[in-house]
Amino acid sequence: MDVLFFFEWLDTSLLAQISKAYGGVFAVVQMFHLLSLAMLGGMVLVGDLRLLNILMTSVSSEEVIDNTQKWFTVALTVMIISGIFMSSAVAMKLYYNEMFWAKMASLGFGIAFVYLIRRPLLKYDHDTINPWTLRLLALASITIWFTVAASGRWIGFS
């Protein structure tokens, strides 16, 4: 399915008019995007490093996962909303940018991984889950979110 029509609409939308005309507004929204990225990274790392038994080993992994998941969702929501605003400033350029689509693919994969695999699995008592499953889950999670962040940064270089 070609989504060109969405990018053409976004390019002429009110969001695009604001993001293109007011550099200051764009910079502030970008700040929220980067801060939410940092928060998301923090929650992913704290949760996954706990599953790998590297960080916060004196706290139960259920407690760590339960606390980090809430803030992960907050960070992801802010990141997506601010990301849409930022995209509106260069919508057509992004549509033809391969790295942007790499980021979108990894982001989509990451969201599906978190809400369809990681969370449902970690709802169970962690002692009943094979330790290697937990380790693989953590490593996959770190890799996916690192890819999202790295491909996002690389959009600016491509």
Binding site: L34, L35, L37, A38, M39, L40, G41, G42, M43, V44, L45, V46, T68, W71, F146, A149, A150, R153, W154
Partner: peptide, 18 residues
């Protein structure tokens, strides 16, 4: 180098956020 700078922001600021 710039990517590393931004990505370590996730580590540093992420931990600081928590």
């Amino acid at each position: 180098i710039e990517s590393t700078h931004v990505l370590t922001l996730m580590v540093f600021l992420g931990m600081l956020c928590v």
